[in-house]
Design a protein around this nucleic acid. Structure first.
Length: 608
RNA sequence: GCCGGUGUAGCUCAGUUGGCAGAGCAACUGAUUCGUAAUCAGUAGGUCGGUGGUUCGAGUCCACUCACCGGCACCA
């Protein structure tokens, strides 16, 4: 049995779990008549869910923490009690714990338990499987801290009541707590929303609408650079670029199945009414596209296709619109206008694995260039048990099994470690998602590769096979850079706003020591701009110190300081962001190294 | 969508028990031309998120609403 701190047998797990009970005890003291949900240990601490008799806010935290410490000081013991099921039920009813009572019944039903386990500590009694510490003396009084209060549905189901969840940090000692809190605070400084404002990358405006980002010039540079990279990777892999409208008739989405399975995520239809010269009224409804695939499918369908054309790779730098739930919208991570470097690859069933392999290796290449490694692979499958099955997925069990087999075999063959995720499939097929964590610890899907068996037949897509007969193609959907919104958010947090030179909105800033060197400096700027380098001259009415400070705050990767020495010798003094050492070199030498680092998209600019 | 919190100048934030809306930074103007993280002086900047209400009087109290933040649900 493992004794890792976060495994159930480990001491930290017991401390966190027991602290959850102590917190619940304190909450029940403060809010008599409240009832309990679940209160498990989690990474960094624990939480407990309550139905509160009176609301609790973060303003109550000092009081709540004080009560918890008082309880800990008493050093009460934790007693395990096993009681027969019927007595357990009676207890829970007497305790006035309807949710625990409901759960107990489910446990008994599913696991065939003959007894229920309770833990008693002081006046607090809770149905709980443990394990716990033996006595509260084992719990350090200075290594926990209440963190936030949040809402959470009972059993994680939106149809159930909303409980109040109190989150807390908890560790084995004060130092570990302080470190975690400090790390959290540092992470806040890397939050993409904050950096986006500080670096002038994007903004939102109430009068434009929620979740609709406005990209500023600086942010647009980053989008454009990512797109350039995508265009290159795709060109080499034989993709062909297409462009399609942002809207389509709603009848298209009826055919594809979007209206059946995806309607909630779509903006409502717009109705256009036209009068014909004959006085007839013609009504048509259009919808904003939530995905590019239907349009691409129509390009595929525009003429007869031969197996010789497959795999046919259609790529589009397109914007799609999704009606995200209001509470889900968040910065650039969840938006209602999504920019995607999207592509659809039409292929035969036999080609599918190769197509997936090709796409995955392209992802590896893109992540390598950007130095991204903090992600994991998720195999998102159909869940036949999903109660919302009809609503969520196309109903074709055999196709699901077949398509999932193709992906599972491939993952197996490639030796990829992945998390199995039933219930996370797209409505039209299984997919491989790349998951990453934001600096604030939220898990988000990034890139995705999806196998679509459902929509091509619905739209009657076909190609003529070697046998001269018509066949329905598979379609592989892929978006290596997620949405540009989410991807820029990830990059911002990943680089802490200090982008490598090739991505930086301003790549070089020239700083004059005094305005006597204006001419030399503007010469450098225009020479670099001639080579498409994003170079700028710093304001000349400030002191050198001020200009350095401003450029540093803006995290500009390369500063060139020029004064008497440089202008006389035709050199520049290079100051790199975050690097103390400076070097003076001929302008041509700097320029060559700069153009090289940009062309190769290196993460580090190695000085000549 | 749900639970809770928060909205004061471009940004960060003050604003007593209801009584004339403030600071720093940024911006703008002028002076300064300076060798590595903030030169000096001045000017301008606001329907206190919005609407309605209570009041002699509302940034402050009440109702509704919008947006944002922390979560849950949903998802790229």
């Amino acid at each position: 049995m493992s004794d890792a701190p976060d495994s159930p047998a480990g001491p930290l797990y017991r401390i966190r779990h027991s602290l959850a009970h102590v917190m619940a005890q304190a909450v029940l003291e403060m809010r008599e008549g409240s009832t309990l949900g679940f209160g498990p240990p989690i990474a960094d601490g624990f939480y407990y869910d309550f139905i509160l008799s009176e609301p609790l806010t973060e303003r109550d935290f000092p009081d709540l923490e004080r009560r918890m410490r008082r309880i800990l000081k008493k050093g009460q013991r934790f007693y395990r009690e096993e009681v027969p099921v019927d007595e357990g039920y009676r207890r829970l009813e007497e305790m006035g714990e309807p949710y625990k009572r409901e759960y107990a019944e489910e446990l008994v039903g599913k696991k065939g338990l003959e007894s229920l386990t309770f833990y008693r500590s002081g006046p607090f009694l809770d149905m709980c499987d443990g394990p716990h510490v033996d006595t509260a003396k084992e719990i350090p009084r200075d290594a926990f801290r209440l963190r936030s209060v949040a809402g959470a549905y009972w059993r994680g189901d939106a149809k159930n009541v909303m409980m109040t969840r109190v989150y807390a940090w908890a560790f084995a000692d004060k130092q570990a707590l302080d470190e975690a809190v400090r790390a959290y605070e540092l992470a806040q400084e890397r939050d993409h929303k904050r950096l986006g404002r500080e670096l002038d990358l994007f903004t939102f405006d109430d009068s434009v609408g929620r979740g609709l980002p406005l990209w500023m010039p600086n942010g647009t540079v980053i989008r454009d650079e990512i797109e350039k990279l995508a265009v290159e990777l795709e060109f080499r892999a034989g993709y062909q670029r297409v462009a399609t409208p942002h809207i389509a008739k709603s009848s298209l989405y009826d055919q594809t199945g979007h209206l059946d399975h995806y309607r909630d995520s779509m903006y409502p239809p717009m109705e256009v009414v036209e009068e014909t010269p004959e006085g007839e009224t013609v009504r048509e409804t259009y919808m904003l596209k939530p995905m590019n695939c239907p349009h691409h499918h129509k390009i595929f369908a525009s003429r007869l296709r031969s197996y010789r054309e497959l795999p046919l790779r259609l790529a589009e730098y397109g914007e799609v619109y999704r009606w995200e739930a209001s509470g889900a919208v968040s910065g650039l991570l969840r938006v209602r206008m999504l920019s995607m470097n999207d592509a659809h690859i039409y292929c035969t069933e036999a080609q599918t694995q190769d197509v997936f392999r090709e796409v995955i290796s392209q992802y590896d290449e893109a992540y390598r260039i950007l130095g991204l490694s903090n992600y994991y692979i998720r195999f998102s499958r159909w869940d036949p048990e999903d109660p919302k099955g009809r609503e969520k997925y196309v109903d074709a069990p055999e196709d699901w099994r077949r398509s999932e087999r193709i992906i599972a075999d491939l993952l197996e063959e490639m030796g990829v470690d992945y998390v199995d995720a039933p219930g996370e499939a797209a409505f039209y097929g299984p997919k491989i998602d790349v998951q990453f964590q934001t600096v604030t610890g939220r898990d988000e899907s990034l890139s995705t590769v999806q196998l679509d068996f459902a929509v091509p037949p619905r739209l009657g897509l076909s190609y003529i096979g070697e046998d001269g007969a018509e066949h329905v193609p598979y379609c592989v959907h892929r978006a290596p850079f997620s949405t540009h919104e989410r991807f820029v958010a990830l990059l911002l947090e990943h680089f802490g706003g200090a982008f490598p030179t090739w991505l930086a909105p301003v790549q070089v800033q020239v700083i004059t020591v005094s305005e006597h060197f204006h001419e030399y400096a503007t010469g450098i700027v225009s020479r670099l701009r001639e080579k498409f380098v994003r170079a700028e001259l710093a304001s000349e009415s400030d002191t050198v110190s001020k200009k350095i400070r401003d450029a540093t705050t803006r995290k500009i990767p390369n500063l060139l300081v020029v004064g008497e020495r440089e202008s006389a010798a035709g050199t520049v003094t290079l100051r790199r962001h975050g690097v103390k050492a400076q070097a003076t070199m001929p302008l041509e030498v700097f320029e060559a190294a700069l153009l090289d680092t940009i062309a190769r998209r290196t993460l580090e600019f190695v000085m000549p």
